[in-house]
Nucleic acid binder design. Structure first.
Lengths: 252, 252
DNA sequence: CAGTGGTCTAGACCACAAT
DNA sequence: TTGTGGTCTAGACCACTGT
């Protein structure tokens, strides 16, 4: 028996999370527009019945996410093109930070075609990345991912059975992440990604329908569980015309 | 007369910044290694003579930067491949978040070749991005950037004179960012970037020495001042073999 | 149980901007 | 001087982990 909060499936939101999501929604819905000043900290304290530190935490998260900026002595303001995010999302498929790498961003039905699923002896470089012994068993998975039956990425994935046990062809054909989170109950918390461009190779010509002159966008990823274990090393080659990657970054 | 801190040019570091940089340096120097547990909050409070909230802020910044992870009931630990960052930096040129987009990452001498520098009437789409009127004056700058006289990126930059006045050919030939920050005294604080791959075009063949089969990595950027003003819209086409972009992202 | 982080308070004092 | 955010305290209580 678990103790549940009133609201159906919400995981017992903290105060700062409530302030964060409320404010974010007000920005996204256009209630606050580009350049608008947000309520000052004191007013938000009042409204939510909390201390300044709590409001500050919520607002600081909005700063980190690129929704607002703050200036000492002046106030907190909506950052340009936060309300009309569409401007940056004209493209078909976009991946922001981590948020929904393994979901369909829009409507599309995602499916997979498994080109290879086998166990191999871990080569040294991958073993080091995943923190396992050289020559330890390693899943070697090669898939083509489709959205609405249109191929858009070739994904080479390596995972260690000692970290993620029990992977089957069924799982590989649908969603590994779903299996990890829902069946194994593990938490995926972060990832390091490196993006680059490359000429397409024969596999991309065959599977993605590209020509010699058309490139792929390569995303190399190391993904981590909440206990710090790197559980996945993957190299994805995306159709150049169907994929963009967006980030927001702050200077410190 | 300004009040200065003891240490030469340091801008009066806060306590959490001191803890953050100290700890980060201990990780980078290998004093703390992958998986090592960091001192618990109470111990750090003791050492620095500060409260828990201050330590927490410093540690939370390390989490956001991908150096450590923390687990309730267990402790704070160095995230894999934080100490040996070289693993991810084998490539020639890398751009992390914002940190040093306009510096030489390694040794290289950076120079510019200006292909075009003129004023134009702002087209509607760019005007909207930069928050200016349609047909307002706009700098139109096209440059090739070299590292050690080797071209690696073609950069198309748009800025509004009403935001960044007084740009000259001299400035464009060296560093616009340097002019903005040091001459105009403005602060550049954040940027939104979108990365994609594209086949190279004639300009890239001529200026970057690429062939038809070789792509470019395209980075579209909107950069902001500390008052929230978007001051730059740029499209950079990088040699695919000399440029990678790395990010770390957390799930929330 | 003890060890550890996570959230939160109710202030204090400082820094910066606008008036 | 007033309005605003930035830093910091010295606690409190809670949640989770492992013994």
């Amino acid at each position: 028996m678990k103790k549940e909060n009133e609201s159906a499936h919400q995981p017992a939101m903290t105060k700062y999370m409530r302030i964060y999501t409320d404010t974010k929604n007000l920005i996204l819905s256009g209630h606050y527009r580009d350049g608008d000043q947000l309520p000052e900290e004191a007013a938000v304290c009042e409204k939510y019945g909390c201390s300044r530190m709590t409001v500050k935490k919520a607002y600081d998260m909005l700063v980190a996410d690129g929704f607002i900026y703050r200036k000492q002595g002046q106030g907190s303001f909506v950052l340009s093109s936060s309300s009309n995010r569409d401007g940056m999302e004209l493209q078909e498929r976009e991946l922001q930070g981590f948020t929904r790498s393994n979901e369909s961003t829009r409507n599309g039905q995602v499916s997979s075609k498994v080109l290879r699923f086998q166990l191999i002896f871990a080569p040294e470089d991958i073993a080091e990345i995943l923190g396992i012994e050289k020559n330890a068993p390693l899943y070697d998975i090669l898939r083509v991912r489709n959205v609405d039956d249109r191929p858009y990425v070739i994904e080479q994935t390596y995972m260690a059975p000692q970290t993620i046990p029990g992977i089957t062809l069924d799982i590989v054909s649908s969603s590994i992440y779903n299996y990890i989170e829902n069946e194994l109950g593990l938490k995926i918390t972060s990832s390091k990604k490196t993006m680059s461009a490359e000429p397409s190779d024969e596999l991309a010509w065959a599977e993605l329908g590209l020509t010699e002159k058309e490139p792929v966008l390569v995303v190399e990823q190391i993904a981590y569980l909440d206990n710090g274990t790197p559980f996945e090393y993957s190299i994805s080659k995306h159709r150049y015309d169907l994929f963009k990657f967006s980030t927001y970054s702050l200077r410190r």
